[in-house]
Design a protein around this nucleic acid. Structure first.
Lengths: 141, 141
DNA sequence: CTGATATATTTAGTCTGCTAAATAAATTGA
DNA sequence: TCAATTTATTTAGCAGACTAAATATATCAG
């Protein structure tokens, strides 16, 4: 009986997150960005010139994924790659003006998407929800 | 102030679902399946011989995605494609014995993953969580 | 009956994401 | 010093997922 609830939670989680990703992805296309690239840029808006390895850590993905994302972002002129002077193995990623200019529009789209997700949920409920989400997170890591 | 909570919810949602997907994906590799294929098979376990268009509806994805998944599953011998006799446009997808045999092992892996996600959360809390997830779902669709 | 439209699928090409293996540079240890 | 190991990145190849465009079949309207 309880199993049904559990199933619904997992299915709902999948549905919500894939739908969010899809909607947000579509919205980002207006900025000539692909979903995920906004997250990479986000790290650079916080700290410009970090290495690909650091991006891996933050994005929680594997090195080849960063290589590809960075390549695409560079081709579109949002970032620039420079080899580190001290350590010739590492690549440092720097924002271009075009990349910096995306911060506000991306933030607006992010907030809009977020509001769509949560709009029927009260502040008190959001606290409860966050607490439960955090516990699921801890269960997985 | 509340915005922080909202942000955490969305970030947490992304983290939890991507981690779930990743773990589950790795687990499915033992069955020679890729993540997502289990969901397609699930539909066939419920109703064998449905069309690719019906699979699209259930999986909530686009026709080319189904084409590729079906191709891969057929090459691995889990399903068989047959053209519909009434309407030569439609392809009907049928399980092979090998495909049918995956139902139990996939179900076990799914349940295992689900328990990992929810194990620290009480039955009462699960009901609350489900209710909130469902509301987010309704917000998006 | 036939030309236009609708429907189902495929093809081509993009992206994120992965693993395995290759490459290149730095570090470590005998 | 120099071979072995570690670290950072890239390449190749695969999957799911997407869009745009092509193909093939069916249906509908005049």
């Amino acid at each position: 009986m309880n199993n049904k609830v559990d199933c619904d939670i997992r299915e709902s989680l999948d549905k919500v997150s894939s739908r969010m990703r899809r909607d947000y992805s579509e919205s980002l296309r207006e900025l000539n960005l692909y979903v995920g690239q906004d997250n990479l840029l986000y790290r650079l808006w916080r700290e410009d010139g970090i290495t690909q390895m650091q991006l891996c850590d933050h994005l929680k993905c594997e090195p080849p994924t960063v290589t590809n994302m960075v390549k695409s972002l560079e081709q579109n002129g949002f970032i620039q790659r420079k080899r580190d002077e001290q350590d010739a193995r590492v690549m440092r990623i720097y924002l271009t003006d075009k990349g910096r200019a995306l911060e506000q529009p991306v933030d607006a789209k992010w907030k809009h998407q977020q509001e769509k997700l949560l709009h029927s949920i009260s502040p008190e409920e959001r606290l409860v929800l966050r607490e439960l989400m955090m516990r699921m997170e801890r269960n997985l890591f």
